[in-house]
Nucleic acid binder design. Sequence first.
DNA 1: CGCTCAATTGAGCAATCGCTCAACAAAGTC
DNA 2: GACTTTGTTGAGCGATTGCTCAATTGAGCG
Lengths: 194, 194
Amino acid sequence: MPRLKGADRRTLILEAAERTILRKGLAAATTRDVTSDLGVAAGLLAHYFTWSALRAAAFSHVIGADIERSVTGRMGEAPETVLADLVDGAFSVEADALWRLWLEATELGLSDALLAEAASAATDRWHESLSGLLARGQSAGAWTCPSPDESSWRIIAILLGLAGLCLIPGSPLSRDAATHHLRIAVRHECGTSA
Amino acid sequence: MPRLKGADRRTLILEAAERTILRKGLAAATTRDVTSDLGVAAGLLAHYFTWSALRAAAFSHVIGADIERSVTGRMGEAPETVLADLVDGAFSVEADALWRLWLEATELGLSDALLAEAASAATDRWHESLSGLLARGQSAGAWTCPSPDESSWRIIAILLGLAGLCLIPGSPLSRDAATHHLRIAVRHECGTSA
DNA sequence: CGCTCAATTGAGCAATCGCTCAACAAAGTC
DNA sequence: GACTTTGTTGAGCGATTGCTCAATTGAGCG
């Protein structure tokens, strides 16, 4: 309701959109969810964003923040610590919403060009940061990873795959089992570690 | 338009639903897509199915047929042949629609109980058939797979993960690269093979 | 033929969606 | 204070969805 400069309003809307997609998912979230989160009229959103563009931007922001929090922002710490935390927290309840966003971005990307681009870019960023971590651990002697670039693709794939399996309600694969499988896969890629 | 016994009509509708979800995906498919595929009035579908139930049944049927075609139905062949074909065809263009169904079933399962149940059951069937194949190759001496049950979970996970990465339009991971990564992951699980 | 009842029709209901637009309100400018 | 610009409102449009239901058709049967 307060009157804001355009840039500030854009920021507020983007943040509200991030909260909304984390709560309801990319597919179920609506423009009205975002505007009612802000306590603002429905028409205001279209003045600043296309829904497709806002949704893609919110996705990019949320994923980027998570990569930063879990990998990129921990350059100073020991690679083995960062990787171990990554494995331990991968399938926690709090991570569910993020995995859901990945799945939905992949699917919606098939009919939404902006989301496809965002998903592609986010995948690149993820691969880059993870392979950077693996390379760092390799040169630090924390583990043996002959090809960080390739290994990170496989680790990302098994992360996504296990996450999808865990997300299914009444899943035959428990969170603990998924973490176990991830740990073994990481061991396959990084020799003895994690 | 022809008048049919209830059971036959149910079968025709189910088959049309399978064609429809393969063509448009689980989320984009509508009841009208199915009835117009059959050249039948829109109201007829609701006389035999709930959309949620029909969609879940069509998903189960499609996935079941694929598992049968690629694994269960090839019990007579050498396990290494079956596994090699599995790897080679995993990320072919024709497989895209099936992987899309998996992704969508996971996501829609979060708000559709019938689809969640179908996805959970399909996952079980898949895990069971793949771990059976791995065990068969193990006892035949085709490879060394100490725990087929666990290995099949990891292989399923990396299959799903790589498939999702390939599905993204403009994906940073090509089909060939995905096949390569899958081959290496399978090698990790089954010793020297595939 | 006449009757019954299941199969089938298709207009349309109620809800939901992103987005439009005329109207209004508050700065900013001179 | 007059005027322009920009932020904001909210009713509502047009399209889409699964599903309803009164009406119609036609096969089976005595």
